[in-house]
Write a protein that binds this DNA or RNA. Sequence first.
DNA 1: AAATCTGCCAACCGCTGTACG
DNA 2: TCGTACAGCGGTTGGCAGATT
Length: 323
Amino acid sequence: MGHHSCCNQQKVKRGLWSPEEDEKLIRYITTHGYGCWSEVPEKAGLQRCGKSCRLRWINYLRPDIRRGRFTPEEEKLIISLHSVVGNRWAHIASHLPGRTDNEIKNYWNSWIKKKIRKPSTVPPPSTTTNTPSSATEHSQVNYASNQLDLLNNQDLTTTRPSLQETLFSSQCPLFMFDPTPLDAITDHSVRGDHLFHESAASLNNETWNTNHQQQVQAQALPPSTSFTSGIDNHHHHYLPPLIENMDTMVPMDQVQSCSMDEEGDQIALDCLQMQRQELNEWVESQHSSFLFWDNVEGPLGGDDIAPPSSNTEATLSSFPSSL
DNA sequence: AAATCTGCCAACCGCTGTACG
DNA sequence: TCGTACAGCGGTTGGCAGATT
């Protein structure tokens, strides 16, 4: 495990690719295609390992790559998707044609750094008034302030409401926007609680069905177990526990029809992709209301489902017993 | 003008999942 | 079932270029 054998060969060149190397790789791939990357370097006459060739092709040379600044639409889509799936860059990239996971990851990281450096954008924990900033800005600030807490590695429990207290007293399902790594949560029993305060303020409460929220609070989140789920052990990142275990989670206004993919990915992703334009408006307006419902035709069936109508009594999805 | 700082991003590293013998 | 090779993923690093001192 670990090093690929091809990368241990001594002749292997590393570092930036030269135009000549690019040309060789392009010429080879366009004429032969790529089946086994480990064979590409030798056949293409490159002193690189196959892994490096693959990365170069995927991230830079393939013809459908899209370069340049992210458009505002792409930016918003990234924000929205990240709020759902966290740091699953490849997944996010799959919803942005021509963009690579690497590019999105770099963009996100540099973007977050910028936000972290702007403490004035982080409201104090007691802030409860809605600000005129966009939803985009909210997402940025929320994440950035959260990261600040983690970086500071402080025990905040003595000065702020407990996580559970904050969660269960809030009016909106705030947990679905937080990509905090699980270890950070379990280690400190808190994750930037002012995050939740601000999220509560940023959402339009008129559109939030408090009955559903009460159901969520009463049934879905036994405090002692709610944050022990939602871990992707493979990729070591944290998915918001509810999202990972919910059958469906979609912004109501965005849904016409949608389907679950084989991996049980969040149905919201398909919806977001299909309705990107509406999503943009949704992000802008912040008048979203996430609802949960359980009328899905099988958990993994891929059948089209109809969203509940506006007067549907949405009900909480059933949760796995592991919760 | 030179030195230093900062941000960006291409590339690498290490890991896990999958296929296959 | 086990071991190996490979693909793919997310985290991290290092070098470059522009900005700042």
